[in-house]
């Protein structure tokens, strides 16, 4: 929670710098943010590779566990498609791409703004941050009414890190490995799905 607040603060500072036109051209250069994105992808890889929980989750893998990230993908995309007609000026494809962030707001918003422009990038950012925050706030209610997998589904890609503590607390320790596995798979899927949805 604190982390997403600080990140929102950096985003807000960026907006302010943009409005006031404070940054020299070098920073606004497109290549600069592309290299920063490459750097981030490399670091995310290192974190996943070095994560012992993630490795254990994969070792405990059986086919049943695959049903969870799969249900998150299907459910999220179906839900995003269902609300798409309510959103003027946003195509079905764009709605799906925002949904395919699965709560991984940093990566999805940067990818989406590179492919489709800043307007959709901002929607992706706000939408995916909200996904994390809603999961953190409503995990106990989700478990109570929709079963122990519900906060894992709601957390999407964040189930492996930021929302893992609330999932473990309200769904139980048995579900921590499932949450890490599901979050990991969705994290890896985000760049692919977003690109495929917007470009294919």
């Amino acid at each position: 929670m604190t982390k997403s607040l600080v990140i929102s603060l950096f985003f807000a500072l960026g907006i302010l710098a943009g409005i006031l036109d404070l940054l020299p051209g070098f920073f606004m250069d497109n290549d600069f943010s592309t290299y920063a994105l490459y750097f981030l992808m490399f670091l995310v890889g290192v974190e996943i590779g070095a994560d012992k929980n993630a490795l254990n989750a994969i070792k405990k893998f059986n086919l049943k566990i695959l049903a969870i990230p799969l249900s998150v993908v299907i459910g999220t995309l179906a839900g995003a498609a269902a609300v798409s007609p309510l959103l003027s000026g946003i195509s079905l494809r764009e709605s799906l791409a925002v949904g395919a962030g699965f709560g991984y707001y940093s990566l999805s918003s940067v990818f989406i703004s590179k492919i489709s422009g800043e307007t959709l990038g901002v929607i992706a950012l706000i939408s995916n941050i909200s996904r994390e925050i809603i999961t953190l706030l409503f995990a106990p209610l989700l478990v109570k009414y929709f079963g122990k997998l519900a906060p894992i589904a709601s957390g999407g890609a964040t189930a492996m890190d930021t929302t893992l503590p609330v999932i473990t607390r309200f769904s139980g320790k048995d579900y921590a490995v499932i949450a890490v596995f599901s979050g990991l798979l969705l994290t890896l899927l985000v760049p692919f799905l977003v690109t495929i949805i917007l470009k294919a």
Binding site: G75, L77, A78, G79, S127, F146, A153, S154
Partner: peptide
Amino acid sequence: ALILTLGGISGSVFVSMIVY
């Protein structure tokens, strides 16, 4: 953005409930 979030969460929670 919020409408999309609610759509995505509802859909995924619904399918996960069936899987559960």
